[in-house]
Design a binder for these strands. Structure first.
Lengths: 151, 151
DNA sequence: ACCGTTGTTTGGAATCACTCCAATGAAGTT
DNA sequence: AACTTCATTGGAGTGATTCCAAACAACGGT
């Protein structure tokens, strides 16, 4: 580990700590570890987050991970997606309205920018009096890797 | 129950039986009951389907409902949707590409026609080499009833 | 019309993701 | 340094769903 990357890690950690405080949450090792793990990973499930956080701080209970993730989602630092047939996944990209493509074979998820230009697709025709606050879009398909290997 | 509605039920039943056969499935009382229950209901969960099917044929096991639903989904007679935080729901509208609005408070789901005109929204920009076969859209909001009562 | 094959249904047990609770422990406040 | 409040732990529990082996029923052949 170079001096440079340590500096970068420290800086990221400091920023995360401030974000937690700004959100009214206390700064704890589990929270910093979970936040860093979710950012470093690619749409990880709760299970994977626990494993990744353990690599950072040695130990964290399964329940703590769930609790931390719930707190982070509540204050908007983490977004939860729940693709059909898969446990919930988490990501730190929360500011914009973006969507996901998920591979039917291996489950990998990649981000896609909103297809509906700027106005974030909140105007379905015939909303029947509903007040809509979010449009969740999941594209289902097969990723390049899976298409290459098994077919 | 009038003669007329009995005729209608018999006819629907006959059509369902033929659909099952065409799909390569055997015609059984549980399957007819589940199919009818899903059609009559409004995005029912597996639980509700079991209850509704029991009203029709007296008894069906929970597991049979799951198995029947899985078979019907496999052959395309029923569509399964899995809104985040809710058990899976089932519907018989399968031919067209339509989406759903779900109420955050009461969980009621209503259909919406595809927002992306004809081309059924299968062209996200930057699909990264994925071959996409379905675009699933869920609009989240609050339904008129819930907005009226609790606010 | 019966019979056998094969696909269905049943019931029971097990699993998976997740939540609840009470008790211990650590952050941040004064 | 002491205190209050919030966070974390471990254990038990829940709801939806799946797995398995045994009993059963649909439908094609005789």
């Amino acid at each position: 580990m170079t001096t440079r990357s340590t500096e970068v890690n420290d800086e990221a950690r400091r920023v995360d700590a401030q974000r937690l405080r700004d959100a009214g949450l206390r700064v704890t090792a589990p929270r910093l570890a979970v936040l860093a793990a979710v950012r470093a990973g690619n749409h990880l499930a709760a299970d994977d987050v626990t494993a990744a956080a353990r690599e950072r701080i040695g130990s964290i209970s399964t329940q703590a991970t769930y609790d931390v993730l719930a707190a982070l989602v509540r204050v908007g630092l983490v977004r939860r997606i729940e693709p059909a047939g898969s446990p919930a996944r988490f990501e730190t990209r929360v500011a914009d309205n973006h969507h996901h493509i998920i591979c039917r074979r291996c489950g990998v998820a990649v981000d896609v920018d909103c297809a509906m230009s700027q106005a974030p697709c909140l105007e379905p025709p015939g909303a029947a009096g509903f007040v809509i606050d979010e449009a969740e879009v999941i594209f289902w398909g097969v990723c390049p890797d899976c298409r290459r290997s098994r077919r």
